[in-house]
Design a protein around this nucleic acid. Structure first.
Lengths: 223, 223
DNA sequence: CCCGTCGATACATCCGATGTATGGCCTCAT
DNA sequence: ATGAGGCCATACATCGGATGTATCGACGGG
């Protein structure tokens, strides 16, 4: 194995074993390079790679640190990878989202508190009667993110965030051509919120399914 | 933004825009570096980072190529990230798997063909009466992978593969302390296979849920 | 006590040189 | 004519050093 890959594995090992904890600072480049037995250039390649997937955080003039390693950082790495996939796999991503989103909504139904419900309602109200496509998509993303956060599973939250990215992008690209898509989306959001307010788990799950399915159907017809 | 990050974005852009297609060969280091306006060392950092997440494939003495970009490569990058998460988040990963696995099993129920069913049965039969923990875990992993593959969604398949990794690892670490865990696992596998054979979607989904839930319960009690 | 300056530190970037693995071509024996 | 083997050009791998630049903390003036 190449020295750089070795270095990646060693740094990974130091973190996984607990020798390096989240927030810890790594020895400076030259020292770490000497310690691992390679040149600074090669070490930098390893550090850069781990930095791309948010394992390390390098700050010029300061040092290199281990990130929080929150599952949330999984999101960014995931969405980066997801960006490389073309339209033909977007439907597969959406199919996965169709599985996760209703489940997350159902989980949220039992856990979401009144303050969060009010915040959701306020967010929907904040959207004007004739929103732009960008506004609508941003609102949609935020609406679902808040609900999933209420489900209390950060892995699930990050995953859905990463999966929603490409869908959203596809939607913006295509420009939401369907006439009634806007009003239908808003109506479905209201319905989901209503089910959450009623603590009606099955209704929440069903509305979430309908919501994703309608996006899927639209995407399939325009793709 | 740093020159290396710029280079990463530019290379990403070349791939996403279609200027570079899967399997294409990149210009050699020195040329690409000149083209992007940076040094070879900095370019190498960018290439190394993209290589870690399986976007690029560098072959010494040959050249640097764009990988197939199959969703399957998402798997490896994901599992690499997942490795960094400690036991306390394993339950969250398992909760997500508990959502996905039953859905995938249900999808497979409608699509799996007889040959695949026979292969599943043969695989279960191949396991001896007193398998080692490693054998059992490997069998479990393979069993579920085959089913999920039959579901026909490569994104879902890769995702579950990545999620199953840490669970499996935790299971091996803990050594499957529960006495009847082995026989119960085998029994549940048989039940899932039986439901698939009967084309009984709801039974398949339920058995898959029970299966994951039992792992979850066990993990929760030993953690 | 607050704020601006200055210097030490550490990463950012580059250059040039050498090592090494790969693939293809060429030669030679059969 | 064909196949095996070796030779060589190519491209990545790795290194060491030099210089630029951002950050943080100490110090001193207002």
């Amino acid at each position: 194995m190449a020295v750089t890959d070795e270095a990646i594995e060693k740094i990974k090992g130091m973190i996984v074993s607990g020798a390096l904890r989240p927030g810890d600072r790594l020895p400076k480049e030259s020292e770490l390079a000497a310690e691992l037995g390679l040149s600074r250039n090669s070490l930098r390649e390893a550090v850069r790679a781990l930095s791309l997937i948010r394992i390390l955080d390098v700050r010029q003039g300061d040092g290199t640190y281990v990130t929080s390693l929150d599952p949330q950082l999984l999101l960014e790495a995931l969405s980066f990878v997801v960006d490389f996939h073309r339209d033909d796999t977007v439907l597969e991503f959406l199919a996965v989202r169709r599985i996760l989103e209703p489940a997350a909504t159902a989980m949220a139904c039992a856990r979401i508190d009144d303050a969060a419900l009010d915040a959701l309602g306020a967010q929907l109200d904040a959207l004007g009667p004739r929103p732009s496509v960008e506004e609508l998509v941003a609102c949609d993303l935020e609406f679902h993110r808040r609900i999933v956060q209420a489900a209390g599973n950060s892995v699930l939250c990050s995953l859905l965030d990463g999966l929603s990215g490409p869908t959203t992008r596809a939607r913006v690209w295509r420009g939401l051509t369907q006439e009634d898509a806007v009003s239908r989306t808003l109506h479905e959001h209201r319905a989901i919120l209503g089910a959450l307010r009623d603590r009606d788990v099955e209704a929440a799950r069903s509305w979430a399914t309908v919501h994703i399915a309608s996006v899927e159907q639209w995407l399939r017809s325009t793709l």
